[in-house]
Amino acid sequence: MAEITATGDRRRLIAMLSPAYLWLTVAVFLPLSAMLFFSVLTALPQDGPDWSLTLQNYRLFLTDPVYATLLWKSLQLGLTVTVICILIGYPCALVLARTIRGRARETLFLLVILPFWSNSLVRIFSWAIVLRGNGVLELGLNAVLPFDVSLNLMFTTHAVVIGLVHSYLPYVILTSYLALQAIDDDIIDAARSIGAGTLTILWRLLLPLSLPGLLAGAVLVFVPVVGSFMEPRILGGRMGTYYGTVIEDQFVAVYNWPLGAALSFILLAVVLLILTLTSPILRKARL
């Protein structure tokens, strides 16, 4: 790698870097700053000349318990989904990384990751077909079981949780798998040679060594779930009002953009706080 010395190098560097970063600035960083500005306005400048600065939108968040309650509800949803993803995803990563070998491992890993890279909206829609009353799940269970069950999972919080776990589970498996796979086999062999059992190895070696990866996966699940709105809308119905859906409403139904900007900005602050607090872990996981 070359230190920048010649002016020619400097010019080339700027020519190669600036298009990408200018693009990111215009499309991401300026909009995020603009959002902060709009969140302290009474009305949009493009709608008329009579707008002024106000903290009313933030005051509303503090005084009207609806918004804080919904934010809390979204945080709880994030926690629930994250915990379930860890509980079912980590063992899966463990099996992939430590029991299965060779080509089978590569293929199975790809199979686990593939849905994650495919269309998330379509995957949520597929759950709507499975979960709806008289849907495939109910008919299937009734065909197998001797008694009739009525599941009616659609438009419940359970449906929202199932859909979100399905969407984000591969994240936890991916990051845990990468961490587990990097652990040196010799350490395990050494532990076994001095008489450590499987559970001891798991609890005292594998879990602590792969913890950064596992936690990174947890953050990567938690953050988008707190900001989710499409999944609760489709699978939650009337039960699906969350912080994210309220923000969506401000922009597409109620057209109170300044309030929407304020609510978005509060969510951004929460997200940035979480990312900052966990950044040592994320860096350790070297994703």
Binding site: A27, A34, M35, L44, Q46, V226, I247, A261, L275
Partner: peptide, 23 residues
């Protein structure tokens, strides 16, 4: 700086873009 576009929920990025592009 490459991290925020991936890590910040798209709901936030999307609404911020909407506001900015209108402005």
């Amino acid at each position: 700086l490459l991290f925020p576009p991936i890590a910040i929920p798209w709901l936030i990025t999307g609404t911020a873009m909407l506001i900015f592009f209108f402005a």
